[in-house]
């Protein structure tokens, strides 16, 4: 890298990274700080004039007292959706990595392709699939899984189903990446040593895919816990998640300090959970 070094001196690396670092600093770190100061401001301001900083920690007390059920729902729905994604995603990622043969690339493209239809439009289509007089509900009623006037739309089930559907690709790709690296000979070796296929799976395949499992669950759980689209479109007022509240406080109520406090709590909750989880899984190097 001699001529580049002649122009920029020894620190080519700095010059290359500077624009991205500046952008991330200015529009990611500084805003987080701004979010924090706003969360301690006097709620009696307005979005155009701005909010006066008041060191008002009471904002945090207010939102926890008023909105804690929203946090519980967010974490529970996102948790269930993540487990469902892991089961479904593992099956598909495993099939692509080990069983798809020459169809591997095609199947991988097919996993990503649904993304290209706007996700709002796809989520809205679940409204039609789960509708009260739709095929799914009527079949379940006929099977007596659902009661005569039982419904799916506007229930927690619909919200979790929507979350699972929306974030499944985020689970599949990291899982596939770590499954694909596994040498099939390791599995053969375990079978030569008389391990049952089931035992072979747990002691070889599953163990080696842990980095993908951790990466995939994070990529699913984090966005799912902040999501409000599925709860808005497929749920009812009693299935709202913390994202719904934050967005409503910002856009309709114009109460930025309380909305910011909610946002800060969500961010801290997730950071703590991620750190504990990654520690316990022994995959710190992912960070």
């Amino acid at each position: 890298m001699t001529s580049l070094q002649r122009v920029f001196g020894k620190n080519v690396g700095y010059w290359l990274i500077a624009p991205a670092a500046l952008w991330l600093g200015l529009f990611f770190l500084v805003p987080l700080l701004s979010l924090f100061t706003t969360s301690l401001s006097d709620p009696s301001g307005n979005p155009i004039a701005g909010y006066r900083f008041a060191g008002r920690f009471a904002n945090y007390v207010d939102v926890i007292a008023d909105y804690w059920p929203y946090f519980v729902r967010s974490l529970v729905y996102a948790g269930i959706a993540t487990v469902l994604c892991l089961v479904l995603g593992y099956v598909l990622a495993y099939a692509i990595a080990f069983k798809a043969g020459r169809w591997k690339t095609v199947m991988l493209v097919l996993v990503i392709a649904p993304f290209f239809t706007s996700f709002l439009v796809r989520t809205l289509s679940w409204k039609l699939i789960l509708a009260d007089n739709g095929f799914v509900v009527e079949s379940l009623q006929w099977l007596h899984v659902l009661g005569e006037d039982g419904r799916l739309l506007a229930t927690p089930f619909a919200v979790i189903a929507g979350l699972t559907y929306n974030f499944l690709p985020f689970m599949i790709l990291p899982l596939y990446a770590s499954l694909e690296k596994i040498d099939p000979q390791l599995l053969e070796a375990s079978q030569d040593l008389y391990a049952s296929p089931w035992k072979g799976f747990w002691s070889v395949t599953w163990k080696l895919s842990i980095p993908g499992v951790v990466g995939g669950t994070l990529l699913t759980f984090i966005p799912a816990s902040g999501d409000y689209i599925n709860a808005s479109l497929l749920g009812n007022p009693n299935t709202q998640m913390v994202g719904n509240k934050i967005q409503a406080l910002f856009t309709t109520a114009g109460d930025y300090p309380h909305a910011s406090a909610l946002s800060v709590i969500l961010m801290v909750l997730i950071l703590v959970m991620v750190l504990v989880y990654v520690r316990r899984a022994g995959t710190e190097e992912l960070l």
Binding site: F28, S34, I222, G226, G243, I246, Q247, S260, S263, M267
Partner: peptide, 11 residues
């Protein structure tokens, strides 16, 4: 690793 709602609201 930041939920979109947090990134959006901080901006």
């Amino acid at each position: 690793a930041t939920p979109e709602i947090v990134m959006g609201s901080s901006l």
